[in-house]
Design a protein around this nucleic acid. Sequence first.
DNA 1: ATAATGACTATTT
DNA 2: CAAATAGCCATTA
Length: 112
Amino acid sequence: MSMTGKQAILSVLALVPAGYVVSYGQLADLAGLPGRARLAGTVLRRADTSALPWHRVVASSGHISLPADSREAREQKERLLTEGVVFRGNKVDMKQHQWRPDLGALLVLLDQ
DNA sequence: ATAATGACTATTT
DNA sequence: CAAATAGCCATTA
């Protein structure tokens, strides 16, 4: 029985460390679903992410993709700031904080 | 089966 | 740098 895209995405999300972020497209890529950024967004919107670091996912530009000025968007920024993530204006400094996992190690972690 | 929708993105204005 | 544009593709209607 094979893993669903949703499961793969949530599995990778669980591994994103504090102080780092991933983009939706990157999350899909790492989950073995290239070109499916929108699926990553859909999964995050629908799934129960209460036990996961959902706030570590932002647009590739560094922008927070939740509705501007929504309660969720504010909470995301607050959580990131608490973890030491630096913003330049309203965007995460991706240069500094985008997660770049060792792909080999990631494969081992997921293949179980 | 078809069409609209969206926590997307790279490119072009 | 902001805004529009054109691809994108699973999910929903």
